[in-house]
Amino acid sequence: MTDRRLLLVHAHPDDETINTGAAMARYVAEGAHVTLVTCTLGEEGEVIPPELAHLEGDPELGEYRAKELVEALRALGVDDHRYLGYRDSGMMGAASNDDASAFWGADVDEAAARLVTVIREVRPQVLVTYDANGYYGHPDHIQAHRVSVRAFDLAADPAFRPEDGEPWQVAKFYFTATAKSVMRRDAEALADSGTGFLVEDPGDLPFGSADDEITTEVDARPWLVNKLDAMRAHATQITVKAPFFALSNNIGQRAAGVEHFILYRGAMGKAIPGAPVEAGGIGEPYTRENDLFSGID
């Protein structure tokens, strides 16, 4: 297949790089059309560098993070980017959840209609977003899941807003994921890294999937350097001490060059027997797809 089109829906600037940056860079390099939809500007994000601390809570933070995203996407090679047009809701339970323009409170059908317009224009074979928990429970991530699921169905419905383009059925729909076994191994490596990042027991973190839940493993290690450069571009949110990084909580994580996904809708492609690889894989042989486009004609 020479005309591959991948659409990713992420909640805030930096999510695209942390969760899927290596795969995005790989598919761009291989000639696929990669489109990113970012739901908010990340206005409620915390700011790490002391010299930029004045931006935290400032209306200008969203504009600043938008500029960081431009640089991050340049590092990944992605040149098709859209905003869904909502405001960052902040962490669950924050007062900002109730802001009239916050994504968390948006009407799902209205937000999905905006995404349907993009889907019908781009006509991707593959759609990627988060699982029902939003990967780790952030309200904007949960809402991105809800909106993407709704848009997946509506985009293919010829009765839904025909003025917004011809119906389009996305062939495969994935959720981002990280194998718990990989998280455990990376935590052990982090403890010996001397980075000064905090080491958290993966069992205590609100994300991570069992190894047998992972359906797809994309090996994009040659593009890990692009992912790390994109992380550095998100300087308000990410501290990089390669190959590790930390967010504002200073809990270290490894920047993965092998990224995991769970197929939610669509048919599994060819299953590839695998074995553990550096920065990815599990501790025992497994069988997974190795390409998000696997099985698509």
Results as ranks from 00 to 15, higher is better:
residue 2 T to A: 13
residue 2 T to F: 04
residue 2 T to I: 07
residue 10 H to L: 14
residue 11 A to I: 06
residue 13 P to F: 09
residue 17 T to D: 09
residue 19 N to V: 14
residue 19 N to W: 07
residue 23 A to I: 07
residue 24 M to G: 08
residue 25 A to T: 07
residue 28 V to E: 10
residue 28 V to K: 07
residue 30 E to G: 11
residue 30 E to F: 14
residue 31 G to A: 06
residue 34 V to W: 11
residue 38 T to C: 15
residue 39 C to I: 03
residue 39 C to E: 06
residue 41 L to G: 13
residue 42 G to C: 04
residue 47 V to F: 07
residue 50 P to M: 00
residue 62 G to E: 04
residue 66 A to R: 11
residue 69 L to R: 01
residue 69 L to G: 02
residue 76 L to G: 12
residue 77 G to A: 11
residue 79 D to W: 05
residue 79 D to L: 05
residue 82 R to P: 04
residue 87 R to T: 08
residue 89 S to W: 10
residue 92 M to L: 13
residue 95 A to N: 05
residue 99 D to N: 15
residue 101 S to N: 10
residue 102 A to K: 03
residue 103 F to D: 01
residue 107 D to W: 01
residue 108 V to Q: 06
residue 119 I to F: 08
residue 121 E to Y: 06
residue 122 V to G: 08
residue 127 L to S: 07
residue 127 L to V: 10
residue 130 Y to E: 03
residue 130 Y to P: 04
residue 137 G to D: 06
residue 140 D to V: 15
residue 142 I to D: 03
residue 146 R to F: 12
residue 148 S to L: 10
residue 154 L to G: 04
residue 156 A to E: 05
residue 160 F to P: 08
residue 160 F to L: 10
residue 163 E to T: 15
residue 166 E to Q: 12
residue 166 E to Y: 09
residue 167 P to V: 11
residue 168 W to S: 15
residue 175 F to C: 12
residue 177 A to D: 03
residue 178 T to W: 15
residue 180 K to E: 05
residue 181 S to V: 05
residue 185 R to M: 08
residue 187 A to T: 02
residue 197 F to M: 13
residue 198 L to K: 08
residue 200 E to G: 06
residue 200 E to P: 01
residue 200 E to H: 09
residue 203 G to R: 09
residue 206 P to K: 06
residue 211 D to L: 00
residue 212 D to R: 10
residue 213 E to K: 15
residue 220 A to P: 00
residue 220 A to E: 03
residue 222 P to T: 00
residue 223 W to D: 03
residue 225 V to N: 01
residue 231 M to A: 09
residue 231 M to L: 15
residue 236 T to W: 01
residue 240 V to P: 07
residue 242 A to I: 00
residue 243 P to T: 09
residue 243 P to I: 04
residue 246 A to M: 00
residue 250 N to W: 07
residue 250 N to R: 14
residue 255 A to R: 12
residue 258 V to H: 12
residue 259 E to C: 01
residue 261 F to N: 09
residue 263 L to R: 07
residue 266 G to A: 03
residue 267 A to W: 01
residue 269 G to P: 03
residue 273 P to W: 02
residue 275 A to Y: 05
residue 278 E to S: 02
residue 279 A to T: 11
residue 279 A to N: 06
residue 285 P to C: 14
residue 291 D to K: 05
residue 292 L to K: 13
residue 295 G to S: 03
